[in-house]
Nucleic acid binder design. Structure first.
Lengths: 194, 194
DNA sequence: AACTTCCCTTGACAAAAGTCAAGAAATAGC
DNA sequence: GCTATTTCTTGACTTTTGTCAAGGGAAGTT
């Protein structure tokens, strides 16, 4: 499917768009292509764009005190990708977003999106609801991290809820996302398949 | 301070309210008082109200498979309190909100708030920004749970960022919130003060 | 195809955290 | 002020997870 259209359908999942509204949005939206391992935003850059992934997969990570990369999140086709704190507060990003695969992205400047949120009800509604859903997702992840063992987290967060990540993300990064070492993840997997 | 006014100030932190707008809101808002240990919402109840705490402290927990209470969150004066999933989706709540102290709350029906979000720009703006801030908070908690040890979590999440909880919340619940056993928390504290 | 790099697993051991049980200390409620 | 209850700590032990190190295998690049 044409990539811009994917973004239109995303908005219209929440409320219909008038043709003129869509044209206004499409005019401000541009496409961006990333190669494997290419960063979408690097450490310390400020982010003034909103991104929507139409193809491919983005990994989020922070560089920790010990210089290790700590993976915090993934975004793939059909989802937004943004270093949210930097986007909202116009501060240097402490997280890096990098493509794990060839990735295609719809990009819109924050000022344009902000304007659309004010003027286009469908965008307002979409923005609010995407935020609400992301919040619930996050609550879910939180509970898992607070109160579940490594094995349980792997089972629910990966095997049940995002099995496609297994094919697309190196296990080191999944381990980091689950808050465990790669070796522990390896053993968890060995025990399950035994 | 008069409690309803606290709620008004909350909204006006984000954008000014016309007097007529505030009157419309005040008319729909009511006060509610909870004694220590009194639930604000119980397991399986659906939530169709939004709550704002003006005095006191609310603990959130879920009852797990092993019948243990897993604490997930706290809300105190100046913050909203809501079983967000139940509130948004009108589904039975899987979390319980209970007062840890004598607590005073501003209550507004969801339909009224929804209407105000549509019609009063300040409420729209406040709602969106409170959600955004809560999301950032959650990201922060998440990172801590994913990538920090028990001791580090206690240091940052409690000692640095919410020390007043120490005086107000039994350590069992703080331990659960940090994703560790009460014994471990006790040892962490012993090691720190040594 | 050969080479390099990255990825994953496994073993041995160390460290961190959980569990069970007992008792001390603090607190709520009368 | 007293009592019953809750809360917190500590010890001994178990389980889980992390760390270090080595090796095999897959995948990307030239």
């Amino acid at each position: 499917m044409e990539s811009l259209l994917q973004f239109r359908y995303m908005i219209e999942r929440y409320a219909p768009l008038a043709e003129s509204e869509w044209e206004a949005i499409a005019e401000k939206a541009s496409l961006r292509f990333l190669k494997r391992n290419q960063p979408l935003i690097s450490l310390g850059e400020a982010c003034d764009k909103l991104w929507f992934v139409t193809k491919g997969l983005i990994r989020y990570y922070q560089v920790d005190r010990d210089l290790e990369e700590r993976t915090t999140c993934f975004s793939w086709e059909g989802h937004f990708a943004t270093p949210f704190s930097s986007y909202l507060k116009s501060t240097p990003s402490y997280e890096v977003l990098v493509a794990l695969e060839q990735t295609e992205i719809v990009e819109i400047h924050r000022e344009d999106i902000t304007a659309f949120i004010e003027t286009i009800p469908a965008v307002n509604s979409m923005y609010r609801q995407v935020l609400e859903e992301a919040f619930l997702q996050m609550e879910h992840l939180n509970f898992s991290l607070q109160h579940r063992t490594a094995t349980e987290r792997y089972n629910t967060l990966i095997l049940e809820e995002a099995p496609e990540l297994l094919q697309r993300v190196p296990l080191v990064h999944l381990a980091s996302y689950l808050g465990i070492s790669p070796e522990t993840l390896s053993r968890v997997r060995a025990k399950i398949s035994a």
